[in-house]
Nucleic acid binder design. Sequence first.
RNA 1: GCCGCGGUGGUGGAAUGGUAGACACGAGGGCCUUAAGAGCCCUUGUCCGUAAGGGCGUGAGAGUUCGACUCUCUCCCGCGGCACCA
Length: 870
Amino acid sequence: MKGKSTKPDSKYNPSETEPKWPSSAKASAGKQKYDPSLIESKWQKIWEEQELYKAIDFDKKPKFYVLIEFPYPSGAGLHVGHVRSWSAMDAYSRKKRMEGKNVLYPIGWDAFGLPAENYALRMHLHPSTIVPQNIAKFKKQCKSLGLSFDWSREINTTDPRYYKWTQWIFLKFFEKGLAYRADVPVNWCPSCKTNLADEEVLTDGTHERCGATTEKRMQKQWLLRITKYADRLLEDLKLVDYSQKIATQQINWIGRSEGTTIRFKIKDLRFKNKEIEVFTTRPDTLFGATFIVLAPEHPIVASLIKSKIKNQKSKIKEIEEYIQKTQSKTEQERIAEGQDPSAGSGQEKTGVDTGLTAINPVNNEEIPIWIADYVVMGYGTGVIMAVPAHDKRDFEFAKKYNLPIKPVISCPNKKFKGAYIGEGKIINSGEWNGLSVPKENIKVVDWLKKKGLGEREVYYHLRDWVFSRQHYWGEPIPVVFCANCAKNKISNIKGTDYAIVPVPEDQLPVELPYLEKYEPSGTGESPLANAKDWVNTQCPACGRKARRETDTMPNWAGSNWYFLRYLDPHNDKALAGRKKMEYFMPVDIYQGGFEHTTLHLLYSRFVYKFLYDIGVVPTREPYKKRRSHGVVLGPDGRKMSKSFGNIINPDDIINKFGADTLRIYEMFMGPFDQTIVWSEESVEGCFRFLKRVWELSLNKVSNRNTSVKLLSKLHRTIKKVSQDLENLKFNTAIACLMEFIKDWRSDKSDKEGLNGDDLKKFLLILAPFAPHITEELWQKLQNSELQQSIHIQSFPNHDPILLEKEEVIIAIQINGKLRDTLSISFDEIENQQTLKRIAKESQKIKKYLKNRKIKKVIYVKGRVINFVIV
RNA sequence: GCCGCGGUGGUGGAAUGGUAGACACGAGGGCCUUAAGAGCCCUUGUCCGUAAGGGCGUGAGAGUUCGACUCUCUCCCGCGGCACCA
């Protein structure tokens, strides 16, 4: 198909200011076959020269910001998954533009991070060489798709002029005490040789990118205090329109849990005055608490071992052994245990008795204190009050170690043996008896508060965000460690030999030095430590010798705020101009992968909220609306991957069918938010559709009026396409366009077919989906040489009067079952009585009505007449 | 275990409580062609029937309704997320 005809754009001269449409394209109208390779690149060039898709700062038209997740430019090139999301949002953007909006649809490159580094290592090249190459490839592919990006705003996270501001944001976090260093258990990936954020580790303990099993390690890390924003990240979901699935997942991830902290006194003298604070969401079961369980990492455990309680030596030994055992358990082992379905609610629980007892504050009962690793230090207070009668895990533990089980909530099923977790009345609980829980839980909490025994408390599942990586290819963290400043107590962090001194703003960016050898060391130290000239620096505070931080930021750092940079990509005074942010923010619709819901999406909301608090950005939330798209699987139904050999390269599809077909296909193949399996045969169907559009537009158009029937269909199509596009229902919008083509082809009422003006309307509504073919046909339709692009025309409105011109088919039912249909003109739709009479006279219906009594007749306007008979 | 989303022809999928299966693919038949390809036309949920026509059909079962893929309840299955989170 390619290269058979002479190039029609040979006469096109790009140096002329006024665009000249290729005259050869017009001359051969009617005979020319649909050949995308002859038209697509031609128009791409022209659109680019005309800067057709440029968003204007402060334009009078209302702004509309459409955002897609900017890609990591991988060596593999564009994935058909990118194409799906970007083409769909391109169609959406184009429609918004045609509706008179000042649309911002930008693109950039998220090029820092592990994938780029790993790829460069594999290719034995430097990331700084690889990245520009990959970007060039991506860019070329994007352009060959005819996406209406505003290229003048292109950004790249690895550009020092960009990451200067990524570093600047970090300094602001540091300044406000929200970036801090701490010894934390980190997820270490032995394959990538770096630590990872919790969000990057999958449930089975593997790294989401490379699949290697991660290990827990203690290491000094930078953390961002996202937990401080937990409540607002949760609360402000009310301000935005995220799809249910996304909102729910964020809510679960933040994991807010309201409960009560209750203090238990330890009875042992050595722990006199020591209290254990437990967190529970079921304070109503306090009378049923029959033991206390400490997490193995709990500080009391350590002091217990130290105290060497008299006559309890053997016990101490037992405890020490247990602690050692749990610590050596890897994450993987714990999970493996949890996957045994026969083990009740989860793992086989293990624990050890401390020999200590605590006093239940409500009834002064003495209850034993145990240590068990089913209680984790990282959540709540790291201690629980165990109520085996009403908690599955406690129940299992009590059974195993023969601890008492005391029911305090009445269970409707008297024979029930196990932990009853349902609602009921409180029993065996003194003054509380008779209260219905959870309904009257609040009374219990108030009671505890009044007596000074407990306080309301909220805990979150969300943890602070581990923000440092021991890798080369990332933004350097802009701080230095200075021994001199520590000695002189200048900005020292307690208990360290080095003061952390932030690099002053005017010295940003701290540029990433060029390193020949950048492989991860595996020792937990960043390869940047080898760049001696770079590491050894002057302290910006005291001027003495100091060391730079060698850890870099995670690959999420650059994507935290990139959508702001699009608004003002060349600003060197601020991350973006305030006025521009006020004009364009918030993002009207943000479209991206579901897998980023608790990663990038949550992170960037947090960072944005912080920027809001320090007065940098103008709105509370960055994204007004968020939607996700489904994954595109290979033809074999598996995830596309090199090892399966099932990767579809968009270039191949473009070469064979053209970009318009590829775009249409990816939008048509199924609902946007659903997973889809690639099917080459179905691609051909879309190509056929465009071919028919081409043939009909050139051959079945005249100056005569379009038949009423077809005209009515056209206007219904306009309405449907407009609505569907608005609701991101791309698949049905295209189906409807196909239907129209089918009707047009089979329209026998007038051989001349469609009137030219009506064809224009059809092309206009097809244009967002298939920009090239529609532009070509649009230009062919014009009489003069110079015409404005179809893509800056107004999106047509449907004429409600024309909608009604067609005949209406009404279903006639007997007792809700279809028995006949009735074809009437639209004018008759209101004549209920007449319609019922006609329906009754139908031969088929008569048969059913014979000798039967009509109880009721229901008429649904224009849809159904239903005879209810006995 | 908890939370969320689903279950419709041979396949991808359509259906504000109102004609289930739009649109597309595939398959079968025909036309065109020396042939192949492309294109065009017809058929295509299933069962009975030559046909007209009729029965059955949206994971299973019940319910609400004149009418249920759609709403309610119970259950089964699949996918995704979280998970010894107190």
